[in-house]
Amino acid sequence: MRITCPHCGERDHREFYYKGHALALERPAADAGEAAWDDYVYLRENPAGVTRDLWYHEGGCGAWVVVTRSTLTHEVLSTEPASEARA
């Protein structure tokens, strides 16, 4: 699998650490309530298709990268730095 780091270019996925869905970027307010926090920390859309997830270029530049890709084919559609990816 090859992932394009926005800073370093196309790299082997061995260089990356995987965290999970990019909804981790949408942290609720402390008082957002039980449901919002359950959604954020535990519940997952878990799509069979296009997803956005978070990869950390641990063996490279240290960037957190949002990767848009398919969970069915592993095709990578786009990548962007997490710092610029928040909705």
């Binding site: 650490y17 965290k19 981790a24 970027l25 942290r27 978070l54 950390y56 641990e58 240290g62 960037a63 957190w64 730095p81 997490a82 710092s83 610029e84 928040r86």
Partner: peptide, 22 residues
């Protein structure tokens, strides 16, 4: 390693507006 990733995640992903480097 885990803490480093975590701090970077907070700095880049949750608060990119903060002036901080790790």
């Amino acid at each position: 390693g885990e803490v480093m990733k975590h701090l970077e995640f907070v700095a880049q992903g949750l608060h990119p507006e903060w002036d901080v480097s790790l």
